[in-house]
Design a binder for these strands. Sequence first.
DNA 1: ATGCTTACTTACAACCAGTTAGTAAGTAAC
DNA 2: GTTACTTACTAACTGGTTGTAAGTAAGCAT
Lengths: 397, 397
Amino acid sequence: MAQIRETATARIMREINRAAVLDFIRRHSPVARSEIAEQLHVSLPTAMRVVEDLLGEELVRYCGSSPSTGGRPRPLIEYNGSAHAVIGIDLGGSHTFGTVADLFGKVQCELDVARQNGDAQANLQSLFEVIQQLLDAPRPTGQRVRGIGIGVPGFTLSPEGIVTWVPSLGWRNLPLKAILHERFGLPVFVENDVNLAALGEWGFGAGREVRDLVCINIGTGIGAGVIIDGALHRGYRQSAGEIGYILPGLNYLNCPVTKYGALESQASGLGIARRGMQALADLGRPVTGDLSAEDVFSAARSGEDWAAAVVAETVDYLALAIANVTAIFDPEVIILGGGVAGSADLLIDPIRSRIRGCTPFDPALVASPLGQRAAVMGAIMLVLTGTTESLVLRRLR
Amino acid sequence: MAQIRETATARIMREINRAAVLDFIRRHSPVARSEIAEQLHVSLPTAMRVVEDLLGEELVRYCGSSPSTGGRPRPLIEYNGSAHAVIGIDLGGSHTFGTVADLFGKVQCELDVARQNGDAQANLQSLFEVIQQLLDAPRPTGQRVRGIGIGVPGFTLSPEGIVTWVPSLGWRNLPLKAILHERFGLPVFVENDVNLAALGEWGFGAGREVRDLVCINIGTGIGAGVIIDGALHRGYRQSAGEIGYILPGLNYLNCPVTKYGALESQASGLGIARRGMQALADLGRPVTGDLSAEDVFSAARSGEDWAAAVVAETVDYLALAIANVTAIFDPEVIILGGGVAGSADLLIDPIRSRIRGCTPFDPALVASPLGQRAAVMGAIMLVLTGTTESLVLRRLR
DNA sequence: ATGCTTACTTACAACCAGTTAGTAAGTAAC
DNA sequence: GTTACTTACTAACTGGTTGTAAGTAAGCAT
């Protein structure tokens, strides 16, 4: 016997309106308060009161006036992103990428440390060190750190901040939020790295003006973050967006997956590299040592046939996955990110033309403008929205 | 410059709480008010006030008391579904299925009329007649009709009640809601039939205790309704859940679809029939006249090899689709409905075993308990929730 | 009857959004 | 420079909501 629909209180109502106003200012600043009231369909006093609060928190500030249109000119309000900093960490498979950025998403300090994955404790220790280093970096005077956002390549219980399982780091049921909060005394938010990248794209990247999006991340594996109504959709078992497990053909049905899903065994960075090596071996040119997906793409760029064929196959796999996402979900935009998306120029257009006509509507497919920084930008969004009640009002249409 | 996040007012807050309380009573009646307050985390006076309203609308009523636990016994409140009726219409490809049901989902009058599809105007006229017949059917004394819900096999703009495009009926940009409201003077709700079936399953069928579900409908074509947080997810272009367009293999990439999507050209009722006829032809036993999907299933039941093979193929296609839905959405439950789901006994278990191990988690797959009535049950949910503000409060987790 | 337990009622406080009327701060015309 | 006008903002108030807390009612046990 549990509730299915949520209930509301006056405080929640205020939080909802606060979030709406802040989000609006962030996306449209500088902007006048009367404009906010009009666009968000709230009364002017309400807009005034909320902005007053935000001014108090220094999340927004005055910035001059708009020229008069015949009457008293409107003071403009702008997002005061530079007054606050966020520590954003993206724990990749072999690297830890950390930044200090302000709430505009402007990166003030960047750290990319290779990590020889040790045991769980050693990896945690190395995370401590990275965070400490970032905290020690010089900041503009008066700028305060508002929180720490961490993206991990694995499963998390997000509001609780517990890392359920991250194979590459050896973390199982690690209460990371509590540990870091204890140590650094700051608000901490823990989230799956792919979800975090999706949030980043929604806040700062290709999904800024959008309610729903899917952000596909192609790196060692393949995963996607799903955003609905400006908030993550995590799924019943926290595994929505696990598109690496899409089956690209009936023949994949009887192969229980071990470590990697069917799609990602073919189209991920690892899959591309593997098929590249196979292609070379078939030509009687076996590779000694390692071949990377990057190598395959650059060989394709310089016109080598075997590589072009591997890329074409990759395009097929991704086109199928994107067509399926479109058919099932119909998001406003689909964003291609992750390491392999660095070669988006070789992928996007071919994928588009492969899909054309196969789905009711052609998907809006774009390459991630944020690239490697998507996840740390997501950390900013987490900190920004995470300080408020975690509720979203959804209008049905 | 548009808003992305919605704003709230006191009235909306009340509507949200009203909907939550009504939904709770509907699912758990009879129930005491103090229990409602406790379970929904609202104060007792709030629960009292909301229930008072609902009593006034006769949506709930008193029904005795629970035995005392030492103090004053609790009067129990129950859902008063039998006091109100809803006209639910499912406009199928060749039949119009209409019901009068009460808010419990108890069908009081059922009408299934074959329709020789004429022009748009004739089809509309025939709809008028069905509705009038249903309205004229005898009802329990005091029972009032609260609204009309219509499911159409095509695209709709739901809140506006405009039918964008329904090929089988020849309707294009038809303001059905306005037309029916004008004629019958009742609240009217228009929705895609598959979405309506999903709502029905959520309210009365296999998705009663669930926040997220996908309801797959296999009939002439294949489509799915997607429910997130107890409300339909329609997608940016109103085409979420169009899983008939899922690509079941790379070889489908270069075939622009005409009328049917790739998956549904194979696994829908029509696709099954077509493959059945092909199988027989290959055996040198060409069919004169028509073969239906039903025929294929019954042949499979009586042990004919060709039919078993066709069914096995169908299982493969559906298993792939369901695996992909699971990977992308991770719904709490996936429901198989529509005409072909009448043969769910031949499908569900084989699909389950084909998927096993291919996705991070095995999907919870069930056959529709509502069958043909799913859509008209959805009409009830539309009328029930449609009288309130169309907003849902979504808690993030 | 008395006391106890539980359910409910009432009154009130706190909070929030909307309305309305008034004030402030500009521009434009004369 | 004065006046009229326009626009932006403020303040006070209304209406609606939830929550708290104290008091009342209803049944049960002794």
